[in-house]
Design a protein around this nucleic acid. Structure first.
Lengths: 192, 192
DNA sequence: TGTACATCAGTGAACGCGCGTTCACTGATGTAC
DNA sequence: TGTACATCAGTGAACGCGCGTTCACTGATGTAC
C-alpha cells in the first residue's frame, strides 16, 4: 500500500496525541499494542515511527506540556484583565480538571513515574526542557522583581497545585476530594 | 517445617515494610516475586499472608503513612518550641527527603498511581482513611480557628509540598532540582 | 505507451520475559492416644 | 514413654496473559527504461 506524502507525519502525530492522553490517564505502563489498536493499527508498525517506547514517552510528555501552555494562553485571553492568574488557579483546581486526567496537567498525572523513567536519556532531556519552558512561559503571570524569581514562583505554584490535584484524584470519597480541592484553591488564591 | 508462634506475624510485617519501601521507590508495578526474593522467600508463600497484591498495596500504604506520622512526631519533639511547622517544611523539601524516595512521603511517591489503583476496594478505603488520619494528625501544627479549617490547611500544605517534591525528583538537572526545592521552601515557609 | 522494478507504511507471527495466582507437596514440630 | 497423625509456613512447577521488540512479508503507487 502506498500512502500520500504527508500520511506518515499525520499518523505519527495521531500516535503521540493518543499516547499523551493514555499515559496521563493510565500511567506509563500503557502498552504499545493497546495504543496502536485504539488507532486501528497493529503493534508492528509502531517502530516505523519511534525507535522505542521511551522515545514515544518523551514525545508524549512534550505534547502534554505544549497543550497545557496552549490552554493557559486561551484561558488568559478570556479572563478579566489583571485576573489571569486567578482564573488559572481556579481552573487548575476545578472539578473539571480533577476529572479530566487524560487531557490535564502532566505534572499532576505523571511526576513520580517520570522520576522513575529517568533511565532513558530521551525522557530525561525532554522533561528538563519541558519544565524550563513551562517556567519561562508561566513567569509572565507571576509577581516578582526578577525573571528568575518569577520563574521560580511559577514552578512552586505549578508543582504545588499539581500535588493537591493528584491527592484529590487519589481519594475516593467525594466529600474528602471536595475538601482537598477547596482547601487548595483557598490557599493558592490567597498566597500568589 | 514448624515455626515459632509469632513467626507468621513477624514475616507479614517484614513483607509490608519491604513492600512499603519498594512501592514508593519503584512504583505499584513492583512484582510479588521480586519482593519475596528480596526477603529470601519464594513467591508462592505470599498468599499465606495476603489474599491479593491489592491487599498488600493497601497495607503498605497504611504503613507508609504511619511511618510518616512517627517521623513528624519525632522531628517536632526535637524542634525549637513554636518552630515545629518550620522544621517540618524544611525537612519535607530537603535534599535528603528528595533523595530518600523509599522512606519518604507516600503522597509524593505514589499519588497518581493510587488514583489509578482505585479499582480495589481495599486500596480505596485504605487511602481515604490514611488521608483523614494524616489531616487529623497534622492539624495540631496548623493555624486556623476551627479544627476543620486546620485540617483543610494541613492537606493543602501536605499535598502542595508533595507536588513540589515530586517535580524536583522528576527532573534530572541538579540546578533545576535545587531551584524547584528552594522556590517551594521559600513559598511554603512564608505562607503557612 | 507499456513493462519491470523500487519504495516503504503497515501486517501479524514469533522471540524471550515477567506478571499474579494456584496448587500439590514438604517436613519439623505439637498433640492425641 | 513411644507412636501415629495433624498442622501449616514455605516451596517451586505450572496456568494464562500481556509486555517490548524483531522481522519476513504485503501490495499500491511512483519511477526508470
Amino acid at each position: 500500500v502506498r500512502y500520500p506524502a504527508e500520511h506518515k507525519e499525520e499518523v505519527r502525530e495521531r500516535i503521540v496525541d493518543a499516547a499523551s492522553r493514555r499515559f496521563r490517564r493510565a500511567g506509563a505502563g500503557v502498552g504499545i499494542g493497546q495504543l496502536m489498536k485504539a488507532l486501528k493499527l497493529t503493534h508492528g508498525g509502531f517502530y516505523r515511527h519511534f525507535k522505542s517506547k521511551d522515545d514515544l514517552f518523551a514525545a508524549a510528555l512534550t505534547k502534554a506540556f505544549e497543550d497545557s501552555r496552549e490552554r493557559i494562553t486561551q484561558m488568559a485571553a478570556e479572563a478579566e484583565k489583571g485576573r489571569e492568574l486567578e482564573a488559572l488557579i481556579s481552573f487548575y483546581l476545578s472539578d473539571y480538571h480533577c476529572a479530566e486526567v487524560a487531557g490535564g496537567c502532566p505534572v499532576a498525572a505523571l511526576a513520580p513515574e517520570i522520576a522513575r523513567y529517568r533511565h532513558s536519556r530521551a525522557v530525561r532531556s525532554a522533561m528538563d526542557r519541558c519544565v524550563r519552558e513551562q517556567a519561562a512561559f508561566m513567569s509572565r503571570y507571576m509577581k516578582g522583581r526578577t525573571e528568575e524569581e518569577r520563574q521560580q514562583r511559577a514552578l512552586a505554584l505549578l508543582s504545588g497545585m499539581a500535588g493537591s490535584l493528584a491527592l484529590a484524584r487519589a481519594v475516593s470519597d467525594e466529600g474528602l476530594r471536595q475538601s482537598i480541592l477547596s482547601g487548595a484553591r483557598e490557599y493558592f488564591q490567597n498566597n500568589f
